[in-house]
Design a protein around this nucleic acid. Structure first.
Lengths: 214, 214
DNA sequence: TATATTCTGTTGCTTTTGCAACCTTTTTGT
DNA sequence: ACAAAAAGGTTGCAAAAGCAACAGAATATA
């Protein structure tokens, strides 16, 4: 994997990359599907870059409900802000959906310019800034969806975000229905019932995970 | 106002501050209570620092409902990530609750080192990084509250956040009940009804806006 | 100090959502 | 190719939340 393809190392040459990774003592690790990559209980202050595979940030509530906070694809970064601090009785973790490889970098080493004061470190921080902006943006969109008051409004809001992102009225849901309901924080069968009504009302077309806004 | 007291200019000397503000062509403006500081329609790519007064980031929905996305106190920064991009028919704005003074800084000028390549600009970027982290954290907390499935769970989740923040089981709500309901995205009377039940069930004590977790 | 306005709190009724149980279809593993 | 597991989908019933209308308390304004 060419690290300079990842957003964090954007605009850093491959040579500088490997030098910096060594300087920051980055570590690569492998995980199996279903395994827990990162638990925010243990709160290791490092960021992870998903090199390949699929994973998700999930929260498990005391009462057994589960919420999907974020879907991670290759090159996604997670944990970069020590965010997702679990409060009280919930527990947040990054869980592999398929086999994964992850690169860990210590947060302190990442944000302070190293002793060698490599100039590329400035670029790294600028990239981190961009990533954080993107994340804030994603979270804002999430808040927008969740602050809708009915299931139908939540669905429409999210569909419009997907459509805007793809510049098309037809798009694929990046979830199973079970995960989608957890993402919207609503009951699965109530959600499917509502999808049926929306179809009947001529708002959407839907077949499996392909959706078209009308 | 001493700008080096603001989080963005933390660890920058007062002298460097004023030099940089000039270099970045920062502008100070005043607003009256109720006025709109910043509309994300117009999307001016600048960040604002609230120097004094109280303001809030609100979203107005097509159907007339309103959601409070964030409360802003003096020294708060907003707009720093071009986030809150309104989708479709909603409109997001920063609205003054009292008279306010705001400092605007162009985002481009802020994130690129200026021609003079002042060393303190590095500090500025590091501060921005910290602010973005904080914001991500705040948004994550917001998502945590909103992804609770019942009004009672939303309330308890938020109360626990407040209690954790103040290190005390007693705290003041920073909202009127109307705004609080908008913040939680629930119906006001349903919320007040639930607060009554929670009091009856011995979960909380409440008198006006002072709440104690039991 | 009187009056208007905004905020707080209640209640009955309606709609929405959640829950549980069940069946069908699709995917996975051997 | 078959069995087992997971995902998709339906329904009746119960619980929760929304809505609207109203009344009392607090605050602002003249």
């Amino acid at each position: 994997m060419d690290y300079s393809e990842t957003l964090l190392f954007q605009c850093v040459s491959a040579h500088d990359c490997s030098r910096m990774l060594e300087c920051m003592k980055a570590q690569k690790r492998s995980f199996y599907a279903g395994e827990e990559i990162y638990s925010f209980d243990t709160a290791r202050k490092s960021v992870g870059i998903l090199l390949n595979g699929q994973a998700a940030v999930v929260r498990y509530e005391y009462n057994g409900t589960r919420s999907i906070l974020e879907n991670l694809s290759p090159k996604s970064i997670f944990g970069e802000d020590l965010s997702f601090i679990p409060s009280g009785d919930s527990c947040i973790a990054v869980v592999c959906q398929t086999d994964c490889q992850v690169l860990f970098i210590d947060y302190q080493r990442l944000t302070r310019t190293c002793q060698n004061a490599c100039s590329c470190h400035t670029q790294l921080i600028r990239n981190l800034l961009q990533l954080l902006s993107d994340k804030t943006r994603a979270l804002s969109e999430r808040v927008e969806v969740l602050s809708q008051r009915s299931i139908r409004e939540k669905l429409m809001c999210y569909f419009m975000q997907l459509a805007a992102g793809k510049n098309s009225n037809t798009f694929e849901l990046p979830f199973t229905m079970i995960d989608f309901a957890d993402f919207l924080s609503v009951n699965r069968s109530a959600m499917i019932r509502e999808l049926g009504k929306m179809k009947k009302d001529g708002l959407i077309q839907i077949s499996r995970r392909t959706i078209t806004l009308l």
